[in-house]
Design a protein around this nucleic acid. Structure first.
Lengths: 129, 129
DNA sequence: ATGCTATATAGTAATGAATATCAATAAAGA
DNA sequence: TCTTTATTGATATTCATTACTATATAGCAT
């Protein structure tokens, strides 16, 4: 039960994220897919991007106060976002060394770091979900 | 020109964030303030929390896909959020040592790290804002 | 204390991102 | 081919937040 089906829409969405290669948002994916396949629904875009992120096929980059973006690069890496144009670029590297590496990247200017940990707090850890 | 005024509403909002002391959201601040001052508008809450964050009086904790929370603790620190109940707790410490420290904090279970850098990209750095 | 003026407020409409709903459609196995 | 059930398209709805605007008021000048 609950078997996943391979649909044309899913293929189009995955291809769009790969072709755009700019950490695309759902709206950008929608715009790209509709160029060739105008009948696709926006709900299908949102639905599948979320599912692909949950299954690990895509990485969801949540942007507080703005639309989420999706990355087809799923190996361990972090992101830099321009606070002016919202462009997102990959920052490769070991998390413990990343701050040292960033010092030698003169092309971008870091003005802030957004770091938070996610998991289970003391209360939820000892309770059933 | 553009002088800030000290209003009762601003005082009530700042006091609420301090009294709640739980990284309150705009809705939580609204609920708390209306207990004693029922005529305040929700727009006033949002407007002032944002302004206080911009001026550095409060720290805005943006949560992708959910409401922003506000912290009256403005010195350098990071956050842990429970993915089950969304409770937010402070994680003090130097960013370069934080990962080692976290290993000895057994009360919470880290399942993910959200890290991103904010600043100006190559294009925006060389262009006027 | 009184008046003036620009800032702030209350109330509500509007926006943007994302999810919920549901009848219709179509994968994939029998 | 038939049947089952995941998936889709279209739209309504939710949620967080901002925009709008007439009214009120803080703080300064008189």
């Amino acid at each position: 039960m609950n078997k996943k089906r391979n649909t044309l829409q899913k293929q189009l969405i995955m291809n769009a994220v790969r072709e755009l290669d700019i950490h695309a948002s759902a709206e950008q994916v929608f715009a790209h897919v509709t160029e060739k396949h105008s009948s696709i629904s926006k709900a299908t875009i949102y639905r599948n991007l979320k599912q692909m992120a949950e299954s690990g096929e895509l990485l969801e980059i949540g942007i507080p106060g703005s639309a989420a973006h999706y990355d087809h690069n799923c190996h361990e890496h972090y992101h830099f976002m321009c606070e002016n144009c919202e462009r997102i670029v990959d920052v490769e590297g070991d998390i413990t060394d990343i701050f040292n590496k960033i010092k030698y990247e003169e092309k971008i200017e870091i003005t802030g770091i957004r770091l938070s940990f996610v998991g289970l707090c003391e209360k939820c850890k000892s309770k059933p979900m």
